[in-house]
């Protein structure tokens, strides 16, 4: 298989929600001497982009997205260790978290997946994460992007507190804060001092990419 076909196979394996196929194609790509960064960006990421767009347009639903994400990670598990460490030093970084009081993390996991597909190195803090842990991690690890999620209405207050602490510790000028989850709204994002709110993970990554070029120093 030539390079072009292999890259297409990588993308197709994700779109087809086939983890084994993605792993095999990734191993093949390395064997054929394809640059692993290229295999990720022009293969797996392209496929995950198709999935993200289809999900945002309600052409597919969560079960398919989860299996497609698994397929992408199967490929990444092969390709990422083959990238020389220095090549990742300029990569953009993000943290993802479900705020304190909430344990519903499927939406957050999709955002994590789409950020990974977008080339970000993601530190996933998990679920039920305290505001102070979010604010401290953002500052101490100098992240570019903070993505916060909640499914439940009462825990919107935890989200507000996390954003407040990032403002209080002075780090907000160095990062973009985005929020998401059914009870949130753009109005709420403005109210609590977050930069943005999105309906879906794909839009979140598009927004963050557009702002990264302009704002993050």
């Amino acid at each position: 298989m030539n390079d072009k076909k292999l890259l297409k196979e990588l993308a197709d394996s994700v779109v087809a929600c086939d983890p084994n196929r993605a792993r095999i194609a990734s191993e093949e790509a390395l064997k054929e001497g394809i640059d692993p960064v290229e295999a990720i960006n022009k293969g797996l990421v392209i496929g995950m982009g198709v999935i993200g767009n289809d999900y945002a347009e309600h052409k597919i639903y969560l079960p398919q997205v989860l299996v497609a994400a698994h397929s992408m990670y199967e490929g990444l598990n092969v390709l990422l260790p083959a990238i020389p460490k220095g090549d990742l030093s300029d990569a953009k970084t993000a943290i993802t978290a479900v705020v304190q009081g909430d344990v519903h993390d499927i939406g957050k996991n999709i955002v994590k997946t789409m950020l990974t597909a977008g080339g970000y190195i993601v530190n996933d803090l998990g679920k039920d994460v305290t505001p102070s842990s979010i604010a401290n991690t953002a500052k101490e690890t100098s992240v570019n992007v903070v993505c916060l999620s909640t499914l439940m209405t009462p825990t919107m207050d935890s989200m507000q507190e996390a954003v407040k602490l990032i403002n209080d510790n002075g780090y907000h000028k160095n990062c973009i804060i985005t929020i998401g989850g059914p009870p949130t709204s753009e109005k709420f994002a403005k109210e609590i001092g977050a930069d943005h709110r999105d309906d879906d993970a794909q839009s979140c990554v598009k927004y963050v990419n557009s702002k990264m070029k302009k704002e993050v120093k």
Binding site: C17, L62, P63, Q64, L66, V67, H70, H104, I106, N109
Partner: peptide, 11 residues
């Protein structure tokens, strides 16, 4: 685990 249950709806 809801995520795993949902995953299995496809597989």
């Amino acid at each position: 685990n809801t995520e795993n249950l949902v995953y299995s709806v496809w597989t």
